[in-house]
Write a protein that binds this DNA or RNA. Structure first.
Lengths: 151, 151
DNA sequence: CTAAGTGCAAAAATTTTGCAAACTA
DNA sequence: TAGTTTGCAAAATTTTTGCACTTAG
């Protein structure tokens, strides 16, 4: 919905960050970032590189790696769960919080937001005299397919 | 404190798991597991392998990898954080599960267990077609003292 | 123009695999 | 004994690096 604004946001933030570090705002960097932010979910470097190459021929793999590191350093992306052999990233949008369910067998990741849980968390936290600022919830288990395949 | 009992617990659980899968309870497996459970924190494969080799010469690296996969499959360990190039693991003690509230200002950590939250987690997970194996919940905020000091 | 960034391919680092020998049940 | 597991080293994967060439500022 607020796609245009969101785009403007990362572009501006990334540019600022690069400039502040005395770096150059180059086309390859912006292209990789653009592809990354256009992808839903938690793309692995693998999928990301494939998509980048598909949309922009001639961008080297090393640039994809280097740009993702840049995005992480700038706080626009974070490295996430693991277990499938390559790095996965998630765009960081502080506005839209969500938690994760992760299949420990195939690595599938589901995002969810459960108000009831958030509320209980607030309660527990308050009960311990704390003021809740943020949280992180990860549930590990087996997804439907892997459960079936298990037998 | 309950070290002896805890030891007995993973040993029994691991043995059960291996047997159930028609596998063999071998010395190398038990040795790797023993070293792993004796290490605090989130040892990386790297440190783990080093420690294993230090305490038991002649155990191959592949066995360390294979045993850690076994521990993960059996639910006695989970793969954790990333970002340093190799896999990290955390021992999971199903009996003594607890979540954390962490003060982002002074670093104080409170452990708590909230059945209602656990239940809701089960529900969400099931609703997404998953079977929950474990989870991790961390709440960040400010503790009472830091709140007072804040003004 | 100068310093930073890029692409490529080679190197490094991490994890998995094949197989004969050793071992568990 | 039959079938699993091991250790080793080789293979496969994933990530980083070196370097000549381009490009942003």
């Amino acid at each position: 919905m607020a796609d245009v604004k969101a785009t403007a946001r990362w572009k501006r933030r990334l540019t600022e960050y690069i400039r502040a570090a005395g770096g150059h705002v180059t086309a390859p960097r912006m292209r990789v970032a653009e592809v990354f932010f256009s992808m839903a979910g938690h793309p692995g470097i693998e999928e990301l590189a494939t998509e980048v190459h598909k949309r922009h021929k001639g961008i080297g793999n090393a640039t994809v790696y280097r740009t993702m590191r840049l995005l992480c350093d700038s706080g626009l992306a974070v490295m996430r769960e693991f277990g499938d052999g390559f790095a996965r990233y998630e765009a960081r949008n502080p506005e839209a919080h969500h938690d994760h369910i992760i299949c420990t067998h195939c690595g599938k990741i589901i995002e969810f937001g459960e108000d009831a849980i958030e509320e209980l968390q607030e309660n527990v936290t308050r009960r311990h005299g704390f003021l809740m600022k943020s949280h992180r919830l990860e549930i590990y288990g087996l997804c439907g397919e892997c459960l079936k395949a298990e037998r």
